[in-house]
Design a protein around this nucleic acid. Structure first.
Lengths: 139, 139
DNA sequence: CCTAACCTTAAAGTAAACTTTAAGGTCAAG
DNA sequence: CTTGACCTTAAAGTTTACTTTAAGGTTAGG
């Protein structure tokens, strides 16, 4: 499979795949006699892992350290699990913050909508600020 | 309050505060006769809002649009409420996605931990992929 | 009065994660 | 045997969100 096909299948631009290779996220692969890269099906799975991990908030640097050394499949289960668990904690914290953000926004909306239509802008501003401030404190 | 004091209180570098001003996230403020910026207490609150929104995953561009036009107090109640409501929808969507990310990560962890310690690396890889794939579909 | 710690600006630098460009080699079809 | 769609490389460009630098003005303390 050449890079164009892998790109179509994975949905990543060829430049991005070459970039990941330069960055050491995927191993240097076989080349045809013409110098073209020849990928195995496994590479597509590695790309999927990379994209997933990114969506979960891992940087390429983190992913590089998570992925097994290209030499051989020593995926060090414990390190992988530990990293994943740490990420769950991060995601949970972010979710908690977002819940507060949403509650704060909704409180602010309720407050604005409760003020009489003729209310002055400055008062609205104060209300917004107060609401957002509460939210910040809850953080 | 000069920029250094605001920086200490908000925990942001002065350069960052000036940067936000250049970028239109905080309005151009009063200057002393010497040209020094003079901040009011409200600015600190705005900075807190910005940091909070960033932590919630908003880009500076999004934050700029969420924040009121600092030109003058014509934050037209209706437009403000509409913007806030739109933001609530966005936050809710983001929360939903994060919940799925977390569930996906936890599923992957469970799967890895369920495999026998002597399990072969390729099987682990497969399990990881299966878990991550489920996550993608749920996304 | 001098020094250190402030403040000002514009412009350049940084890091991450890519993409685009330039210049060229390869290959299947007509 | 040429055209167009591929592939190759190195290097430069892009975006976001800042920080750092350079060159200088201001102010409080001893």
């Amino acid at each position: 499979m050449k890079i164009g096909e892998l790109a179509r299948e994975s949905g990543l631009a060829p430049s991005r795949i070459r970039f990941y290779e330069r960055e050491g996220l995927i191993g240097s692969i076989d080349r045809g006699l013409n110098g073209y890269r020849q990928y195995s099906r496994g590479t597509r799975q590695v790309l999927e892992i990379i994209v997933m991990a990114q969506q979960a908030g891992f940087s390429l640097d983190e992913i590089r350290n998570l992925l097994p050394p290209h030499g051989k499949g020593d995926w060090s289960r414990d390190r992988l699990v530990a990293a994943l668990k740490a990420k769950v904690v991060e995601v949970a914290a972010l979710r908690h913050r977002l819940a507060e953000t949403q509650a704060g926004l909704e409180a602010v909306i309720a407050r604005i909508e409760a003020t009489p239509p003729g209310g002055d802008c400055f008062e609205n501003a104060e209300a917004v600020l107060a609401g957002l401030k509460d939210q910040v404190k809850a953080d």
